[in-house]
């Protein structure tokens, strides 16, 4: 289990369900160890530099020329580009393109993008050290359960925090899965995240399968009113 994922901001019901799942693994013969990934918490800021950087480059292709939307209002090429993109992209996509373009720009590249790439390596090293001691890492998939529609749309940071536990895995390129491990008081599902070493999908699925077969959570189906 990753110590750093059981800190502040974790909903009580999620913590309880995940700790019970860990007890379940122990009762099945797993040797449970608490592991520290001290750089885990830098995953979120690192991701929000690297991902928008790549997005700003990848999304440059939507210029109204090759495919997709093209504005009909423009009277010259530059205004066609800018108006097509202004009309075609939503607010979050624009935010990430702007962040990405900013952190890649001359003068800021070293301070942000290059630094983020270095931190990415440190996060990967945390995982490498962890996998010298254990086969599979376990933590909550998210710090909370599903929230109400509209609750976090005005506050991008609170929305980004939902991915706190999943992002470091992408930065390190590792396999991971979420498997149902309980419900909160409102009846909303809780997920258990299992993280494996590079290319250990077979082992990861085996561990998840053994847990699933020992529990009943996956048998419950949503009753849609």
């Amino acid at each position: 289990m990753i110590r750093e994922t059981f800190g502040e901001g974790l909903e009580g019901a999620v913590e309880e369900a995940v700790r019970k799942a860990i007890e379940q693994f122990a009762s099945m013969g797993a040797e449970v160890q608490e592991i520290s990934c001290p750089r885990f918490r830098y995953g979120l800021p690192t991701y929000y530099i690297i991902a928008p950087s790549e997005a700003s480059a990848n999304l440059a292709r939507y210029d109204g020329v090759k495919y997709g939307l093209r504005t009909e209002e423009a009277d010259n090429l530059m205004s066609m580009y800018t108006q097509t993109r202004a009309q075609g992209f939503g607010a979050e996509v624009k935010r990430r393109i702007m962040v990405g373009t900013y952190v890649l720009s001359a003068g800021y590249y070293d301070a942000y993008y290059l630094k983020a790439q270095k931190v990415r390596t440190l996060i990967k090293q945390d995982f490498e050290r962890a996998f010298e001691q254990v086969d599979v890492l376990v933590c909550p998939t998210a710090p909370n359960t599903a929230f109400k529609a509209g609750e976090r749309t005005e506050d991008p940071i609170s929305m980004y925090l939902t991915d706190l536990m999943t992002i470091p895995v992408n930065l390190a390129g590792l396999p991971a899965l979420s498997v149902p491990c309980g419900f909160d008081a409102q009846g909303m599902p809780i997920g258990l995240q299992l993280i494996g070493n590079v290319l250990q999908e077979e082992q990861l699925l085996q561990v998840a399968y053994a847990y699933e077969q020992a529990t009943e959570w996956h048998k419950q189906m949503a009753a849609i009113e």
């Binding site: 939902t162 991915d163 992408n170 899965l177 979420s178 909303m188 809780i190 250990q200 990861l204 996956h218």
Partner: peptide, 21 residues
């Protein structure tokens, strides 16, 4: 990319997996 399979799997009570890059 940053949890886009595992997070909704968790919120909807299903299994979701991100393989090795």
């Amino acid at each position: 990319t940053g949890g886009s399979i595992r997070l909704p799997a968790s919120f909807c009570g299903v299994v979701g997996m991100k393989p090795t890059y």
